[in-house]
Structures are given as C-alpha cells and as structure tokens.
Simulated assay, not measured.
Amino acid sequence: MKTILNIIWFVFAGIELAIAYVVAGLLLLIPIVTIPFALASFRIAAYALWPFGRSVVDRPGAGAPSVIGNVLWVLLAGWWLALAHLITSIPLFLSIIGIPLGWANLKMIPVSLLPLGKEIVRS
C-alpha cells in the first residue's frame, strides 16, 4: 500500500514539492552561512518525493543552535514551503483517493517550518 501511495504522491504532489525544496536549497547555498539550511532542504526534498513509509523524529542532542537555526529558516524559506504544502493539499482533498495524500501533505508542514533538529527515518 505504501508503494501505491508513494507513486500517486509522486505524480500529484511529490515532484513539485521536491523541486521547491531543491530550489530553496540551491538558493541557500549561495551565502556560505546558510549551507546547513541547504542541506536540510535537500534532505526534506528526498522526503517530499517518497513520504509514505517514513516519519520525522526529533534528533537527540539538538539544542540551542537548532532553535536559532529554525528561527532563521522560517524567515528565509520555511514560510513559503509550508504555504506550498498547504496549497497543494487543497486539490488533493477534492478526490477520495487524494484524501490520504492531502493529510500527508499537511503532516509535512511542521518539518517544512522547523527542519533543524529533526531526522527522517523509515517507519
């Protein structure tokens, strides 16, 4: 079932969201200071391609630098990536097949807003 959902997700939302994360990552590579943000963006891009069968967990040992980094992330890229998830979830909710995909899209909003201090693991 996860494979079928991942394939449907890839076609209807995954590729667009992954491209958005890659573009954000490439833009964040330009200033040297934001390279850790770019790496987080690329990591979430892979998650946005195939989200079913994976989950986001807190990384132990992530402390104050992650909190400060998350504040900067929200200002630089997080708000418009979260908005992209919200916008792409609306048409997914319009069909019965798309409802689980819409929920998965909404579940990705917290990691798109606060990615530092998180890990993506297989569930």
Rank of each mutant, 00 (worst) to 15 (best):
L76G: 08
N70E: 14
V121F: 11
A62F: 13
L27W: 15
I35A: 09
P36K: 12
I35H: 07
W103Q: 09
W73G: 02
V33M: 14
R43G: 03
L75P: 03
I44R: 01
I15Q: 13
K118Y: 09
F42P: 00
A40W: 04
I68K: 00
G78F: 07
L106R: 08
I19D: 02
L76D: 06
A13K: 02
S123P: 07
W103I: 15
L49N: 05
W73P: 01
S123Y: 06
F42E: 06
K2R: 12
N70Y: 14
V111E: 00
L101A: 07
I15N: 14
L86G: 15
R122P: 02
G53F: 12
P110Y: 09
P31S: 11
I32S: 11
T34C: 12
W50A: 00
F37R: 01
L83Y: 15
A18H: 02
I44S: 02
S55R: 05
R43L: 07
P36S: 14
L86N: 15
V71A: 14
A13I: 00
S112Y: 07
P60V: 12
H85T: 13
V33W: 11
I120M: 02
I90V: 15
V22T: 06
F10P: 04
L27K: 14
V56P: 00
L114R: 04
H85M: 15
F10D: 02
P60I: 04
W103D: 10
R54D: 01
W80C: 10
A13Y: 00
W79T: 13
W103E: 06
P65I: 14
L39Q: 09
P65Q: 08
L106N: 09
V22D: 07
G117F: 11
R122D: 10
A38Q: 04
A24K: 06
P36A: 08
W80Q: 10
R59H: 13
I30D: 15
F93A: 05
F37Q: 00
F10G: 09
P100E: 03
I19R: 06
L28Q: 03
S123G: 04
S41Y: 02
V33Y: 12
W73M: 04
G63W: 13
L5I: 10
G102R: 03
A48L: 03
R122A: 08
L116W: 07
I90T: 11
L26C: 12
P91K: 05
N70G: 13
D58P: 04
L116N: 06
V67M: 09
L101N: 08
